[in-house]
């Protein structure tokens, strides 16, 4: 499965979801987007974004504040 990386480290709300939204528009269904971010609200925001946009959050991890979310483009 192909993947695209998106670095949102150092960006603050609302920029990570702005960037995710833009990046996801370019992807074909089935492709994943791996987003790295340091915004403290990133987990709540990415979860809300995925729910609202009917996409799939396949994994989420947080290592010392550097969070990594993998979003699969469903449609």
């Amino acid at each position: 499965m192909s993947n695209v990386d998106l670095d949102c480290k150092g960006l603050n709300c609302p920029m990570p979801i702005v960037k995710i939204s833009r990046a996801m528009k370019e992807l074909q269904p089935g492709v994943t987007l791996t987003v790295m971010a340091s915004d403290p609200s990133f987990k709540a925001d990415v979860e809300a974004w995925v729910r609202k946009m009917n996409q799939k959050l396949t994994s989420f991890s947080d290592v010392d504040g550097i969070q990594t979310a993998v979003i699969e483009k469903v449609s």
Partner: peptide, 11 residues
């Protein structure tokens, strides 16, 4: 503007 930009990013 944060809310507006956020809403636009949520489709």
């Amino acid at each position: 503007f944060t809310i507006a930009v956020g809403a636009a990013s949520m489709g």
